[in-house]
Amino acid sequence: MKDIQAEISKDRRAFIKKVLGGTIAGSLFLVIPAGAMDIPEQIAGMLEEDGPFITKKKFAFIVDITRCIGCGSCCVADKNEYNVPDGNYRTWVERYVIDVDDNVYVDSPNGGLDGYQVPREDVVQDTIRDTFFVPKLCNMCEKPSCVQVCPVGATYQTDDGFVLIDEKRCVACSYCVQACPYSVRFINPVTKTADKCTWCYHRVRKGLLPACVEVCPVKARLFGDLNDRESEVYKILHQPHVISVLKPGMGNKPSLHYVGLRREVV
C-alpha cells in the first residue's frame, strides 16, 4: 500500500514539474520574439547603428532653464548612475536670485543634490525680482580643450562627438581639469583618474536617454539627434527660441545648448 502511495506522489511531483517547466518555456517562447529582451528605444534609430562608432547621428543636449524647478532629481540620478564620490560633481544645478537692485546671488549647495527646498536666508525675500535654476554638465565641446591638453591621450573625442576618458590610461595630471572652461572635470578620489559627465554614453549606445534626461520631471533636460529632423532637439534649435551656449568666447563650440539663457549666467 505504501509503495502505491509513494508511486502516486512521485508521479504527482513529476507532473507538477512538467507543467511548471512547460509553462515557463511556453511563456518565454511567446514573450522573447515579442521583444521582451529588447530595451525600448528612447532615441530613434539607435538600434540600427552597428559598429564601434555611431556615425549617422549628431547629438545635442538642450537645457531649458525656463523649465527647471531645481528639484535636484537629475543630480540624484547622476550620482546613483555613477556612484560619484561626495564633493565632486558630474552635473549640478545652480540657483540664481536677482534682487530689485540687480544684485545677482548664485549658489549651489552640495551641487543642488538635495534640491532647493529652503529660500536663501541672506537675501530679503521682498526684494527678490527674479529667480531661476541653471543645470550644468559637460558641454561636450566640438573643440574640447581637455582633449587638446591631455598628455597621454586618455581624454579623447569619439567620431560621434562624445568626449570620454580612458581611465586605464589617465595619469591624473589634472591638466584637463585646469583646461576645461566650465569646471565640469574633477579627479575621482576612488579611481585616481579624471572624471566627468559622459552624457551617459553607455546608455545612449543602447538607445537609452541619459539618466538625468530620463528623470527630469519638467523636461528641462533634452537629448537627441540633430540629424533626425523629427527629434525634439532639432525642432527646438531650429525654432525662434532664445538659445545660447556657455562662454562662447572660449571657442570650444559646445554641443550643450541653453534655452532661455540669461546674461547673468556664466
Partner: peptide, 17 residues
C-alpha cells in the same frame, strides 16, 4: 579629497568642482 586639496573658504560663488 583624493588627489586634490580642498580650499578652505569660499567667497562669492565658486563652481562646486
Amino acid at each position: 579629497h583624493g588627489l586634490a586639496e580642498t580650499a578652505s573658504t569660499a567667497a562669492g560663488y565658486a563652481f562646486p568642482n
